[in-house]
Amino acid sequence: MNKNDAGRTVFILRMIILILGAAMVIIGLLGGEYTVVFNKAVRICLECIGIG
């Protein structure tokens, strides 16, 4: 694989990851996953501080 091909492959993979990441964020938001994150983050996590 020459340098141009390698660069193009990296560019395409980067775009795929960007689009996939954005799509996953949207799916997660629509599925209400942010509420799980929020509910965990607004209560003192007893495990995190070593008493859970």
Binding site: I17, L18, G21, A22, M24, V25, I26, G28
Partner: peptide, 12 residues
């Protein structure tokens, strides 16, 4: 989905 997607965006 949401957490992994966020991490993928930060990562890339």
């Amino acid at each position: 989905f949401y957490v992994l997607g966020s991490l993928m965006l930060f990562g890339v």
